[in-house]
Design a protein around this nucleic acid. Structure first.
Lengths: 203, 203
DNA sequence: GTCTATAAAGCGATAGAC
DNA sequence: GTCTATCGCTTTATAGAC
């Protein structure tokens, strides 16, 4: 696409910096706990200036959610290009999401009763991307079940929700907080509980 | 214990009603989103009256957390009396927690960065109960690993966190919200993903 | 102990000068 | 577009009459 004038590029860079701050603050405190004053202070501009770029707090969060979904689509494309099984792709995507979360860069899932939820449901770009990501993952889930790599008795919907939930699970953070394990060790453990559970399956 | 005067009993009943309201509102909206005005309106008394019973919003939430932990201890006692394996006890306790959650009566886990967390860390009754519950579950986890019913390669700490996290998982709520499955079906599916994972284990 | 009324503080959003 | 200053609203918590 055309990049526009130099002035426009400067604008885009600034807005990108804003979104980065929002993304980190969302990951750290969640939507309701994040204040617009904090975002402005973190970016280093006045609050009124922030509102010239984004019309509301919800719009700020929506932009961050769109960016993380765009990033997710890139990861999905990378995995689609690999010649590995569907379950292996799912495992790699989950591993990536856990890394992002432990790095403190995974914005919180919009909970059922947030003011954010209403705004996101009216945000076309967000819904479009979320649907794309869900469809892509859904295909791999069905394929992995057909391959005999995922439990066929579980509805794909349940598997999808479970994978999404792992990206915001409190467990990795709690294990990391104990300070006794490396991030990679935590990720492998959580991956194991996600795909194989905590139990020993009867043979 | 002595029940005290009739007047004291009336007080206890009222405080119990307050805690019930707090418990439900905590489950519904979480600590930060729950307002003291709502609690007062739900109980049917004035806000100032509420502050005669509990000195702060945090104290309200702490009382609700203590009550749910007391309830949990009762469930643990029931399971301890059964002559079944440790893993079966863990499964039953988890099943109970999922039922409570789907009934909208499981107060939210205090997140890492809440004002509630500080208050709870200074609340002796809460900490004591939390430790008792954790110790009891920890013993069963170690026993289940020794029995060969839980994966020995996972640290008991990880298993404990995983079980706690299941009690507040967004997945059951999302599945229930779809309206296509019964509560019991949702519970069994989530139990399955927790203990056996979503994958098919290589034989 | 219960109420009404209000204080005190934090927040999202905007006005208006530059 | 950026700033300072402020509005309008919500929320926690308390004062004071009964």
């Amino acid at each position: 696409m055309a990049r526009g004038s130099f002035r426009d590029q400067v604008l885009r860079v600034r807005e990108d910096a804003i979104i980065s701050s929002v993304n980190r603050l969302l990951a750290e405190k969640g939507f309701e706990q994040m204040t617009v004053d904090e975002v402005a202070a973190d970016v280093g501009i006045a609050k009124a200036s922030l509102y010239k770029h984004f019309t509301s707090k919800e719009a700020l969060a929506a932009a961050a959610m769109v960016r993380v979904l765009e990033h997710t689509m890139e990861v999905l494309d990378q995995q689609a290009a690999r010649e590995v099984s569907a379950v292996e792709r799912l495992r790699e995507v989950t591993r990536w999401a856990l890394r992002v979360q432990l790095a403190g860069e995974m914005p919180i899932l919009p909970s059922q009763n947030s003011t954010l939820r209403a705004e996101l449901l009216g945000h076309k770009a967000y819904l479009e991307l979320l649907m794309q990501v869900s469809d892509r993952l859904g295909e791999w889930i069905v394929q992995a079940q057909a391959d005999g790599d995922l439990d066929r008795s579980l509805p794909p919907e349940l598997v999808l929700y479970t994978l999404f939930a792992r990206a915001c699970d409190p467990v990795p953070g709690a294990l990391k907080a104990s300070g006794r394990h490396s991030d990679e060790q935590v990720i492998e453990w959580v991956l194991a509980t996600c795909f194989s559970g905590i139990g020993v399956r009867p043979s």
